[in-house]
Computed example of a mutant assay.
Amino acid sequence: MTELADRLEALETRIAFQDHTIDELNATITAQWQQIDILKRKLDTIEQQVRAGVHIADPASEPPPPHY
């Protein structure tokens, strides 16, 4: 009966590790989606500013870099 008990314990241990891994993956995916949402909002804001004609520096008006 100890062989069966050992196999059962091994399966329970394996399931516990799998559950832990699934929880970690879920947390990672949730954090990534939150970051994606933040980045989407920032991109939308920038797009609105560009479409509204918010002044963006003209490269011709920039002074040349020091190595010129």
Rank of each mutant, 00 (worst) to 15 (best):
D6L: 15
E3A: 15
L39N: 06
V54Q: 01
D19R: 15
L39M: 09
D19N: 13
H67S: 08
K40P: 02
L39Q: 05
F17G: 00
Q48G: 00
I46F: 01
H67K: 12
A27G: 01
I29W: 10
P66F: 13
E9H: 09
L8M: 09
A16V: 04
E9N: 07
E12K: 14
M1S: 03
A60H: 11
Q34S: 09
Q48I: 02
E3Y: 14
I15T: 06
R14M: 04
I46M: 02
E47I: 07
T45L: 08
E62Q: 10
E24C: 05
F17T: 03
A5T: 11
P63A: 15
Y68E: 03
H20I: 06
Q34F: 14
A5Y: 08
I15F: 06
K40W: 04
T30E: 09
T28V: 03
I22K: 10
L25H: 12
A5I: 15
A52H: 04
A5R: 08
L25I: 07
V50I: 15
P63S: 13
D44P: 01
K42S: 11
Q32G: 00
E12Q: 10
T21S: 07
P63E: 14
P65C: 12
W33N: 11
L8W: 02
M1V: 11
T21N: 05
L43Q: 13
E24I: 02
E3P: 03
H67E: 03
I36L: 11
D23Y: 08
N26R: 06
V54H: 00
H55W: 03
R14P: 01
V50L: 12
T2M: 13
R41H: 03
H67P: 02
A60W: 04
L4R: 02
D58F: 05
E9M: 09
P65A: 15
E47P: 00
I56P: 00
A52T: 02
T30G: 02
K42E: 10
D6F: 14
H55C: 01
L43N: 11
T28A: 10
A5P: 01
T13K: 08
E3C: 09
E9V: 06
W33P: 00
Q32E: 14
A10L: 05
D6M: 15
A27I: 04
T21M: 10
V54S: 00
T45P: 01
H20P: 00
A60S: 06
I56V: 08
A5E: 14
Q48P: 01
P63V: 14
R51F: 03
T28R: 09
I22P: 02
Q48C: 01
T2P: 03
I22T: 14
R41M: 05
A27S: 07
